[in-house]
Simulated scan of single mutants.
Amino acid sequence: MKLGVDQRVKNTIQTIKDEINGLDYYLKILSISDAIVRADDIDLEERKNLDTEGILDLILSKLYELYNDGKYHSIKWILEGNGVKLNGHTEDWDYGRMLEDRGFIETINDRDVNAKLKLEGKYAIEQARKAQVPDYSKISDSDEELKTLLKEVLTEVKKSGYGQQIIFDEFDELRKDIPHLSKKSFGQLLKSKLGDLVAAKAFDKTLASDIFKQFTDQMFPF
Rank of each mutant, 00 (worst) to 15 (best):
Ile105Asn: 02
Phe171Thr: 01
Leu63Arg: 04
Gln7Ser: 09
Glu120Thr: 13
Arg47Trp: 03
Lys2Asn: 14
Ala115Cys: 04
Ala115His: 01
Pro134Leu: 02
Ser209Phe: 01
Leu154Lys: 00
Asp40Phe: 03
Lys130Asn: 14
Lys71Ala: 13
Leu194Ala: 06
Asp69Ala: 12
Ile32Lys: 07
Lys205Val: 07
Asp34Glu: 09
Asp41Leu: 09
Ser192Arg: 12
Ser74Met: 09
Lys122Cys: 11
Asp24Ile: 12
Ser192Cys: 09
Leu44Arg: 05
Val37Met: 14
Arg129Ile: 12
Asp172Leu: 07
Glu65Thr: 14
Lys138Tyr: 12
Leu181Ser: 03
His73Gln: 09
Ala115Arg: 01
Asp101Ala: 15
Pro179Ser: 07
Trp77His: 04
Gly54Thr: 03
Phe220Asp: 05
Gly161Gln: 00
Lys213Val: 08
Ala199Met: 13
Gly4Val: 09
Gln214Glu: 08
Leu50Val: 03
Asp135Val: 15
Gln132Asp: 02
Arg102Ile: 00
Gln7Lys: 12
Lys10Tyr: 06
Gln214Ser: 11
Thr12Asn: 10
Val113Glu: 07
Lys28Arg: 14
Tyr64Gln: 04
Ile20His: 00
Ile105Ser: 09
Ile59Arg: 08
Glu156Asp: 13
Arg129Trp: 12
Gln218Trp: 00
Pro221His: 11
Glu80Trp: 06
Leu66Thr: 07
Lys147Met: 05
Thr90Leu: 15
Asp57Ser: 13
Ser142Cys: 05
Gln188Ile: 02
Lys17His: 03
Val9Ser: 10
Lys10Gly: 11
Asp196Thr: 06
Ile29Asp: 01
Leu181Glu: 08
Asp51Ile: 02
Ala128Lys: 06
Phe220Leu: 10
Leu181Cys: 07
Gly187Phe: 05
Leu181Phe: 10
Ala39Asp: 05
Gln164His: 10
Lys130Arg: 10
Arg8His: 03
Gly195Cys: 04
Leu63Asp: 11
Tyr123Asp: 11
Met1Phe: 09
Asp204Gln: 10
Gly163Lys: 05
Lys193Val: 07
Arg102Glu: 05
Trp93Thr: 10
Asp112Val: 05
Glu100Ser: 15
Ala35His: 02
Thr216Gly: 10
Phe212Tyr: 02
Lys176Ser: 15
Lys28Ala: 15
Leu44His: 06
Phe215Asn: 01
Asp169Met: 14
Glu91Cys: 09
Val198Met: 10
Leu146Tyr: 05
Glu120Tyr: 04
Leu60Gln: 05
Asn87Gln: 11
Asp141Cys: 10
Phe212Ser: 11
Trp93Tyr: 12
Asp135Gly: 15
Asp196Met: 13
Leu86Asp: 08
Ile178Thr: 13
Gly195Ile: 03
Glu106Tyr: 08
Lys151Val: 04
Ala128Phe: 06
Tyr162Leu: 07
Lys151Leu: 12
Lys138Trp: 08
Lys205Pro: 04
Asp34Ser: 14
Lys85Gly: 06
Phe168Pro: 08
Leu50Thr: 00
Gly96Trp: 04
Val113Pro: 02
Lys48Asn: 08
Val157Ile: 15
Glu120His: 05
Lys62Gln: 03
Arg111Lys: 06
Tyr136Ile: 02
Tyr25Arg: 13
Asp143Pro: 00
Lys159Ser: 07
Ile211Asp: 06
Trp77Glu: 11
Glu126Arg: 14
Leu56Cys: 08
Asp169Gly: 08
Ile105Asp: 02
Thr15Asn: 00
Ile55Gly: 00
Phe212Ile: 06
Phe215Gln: 08
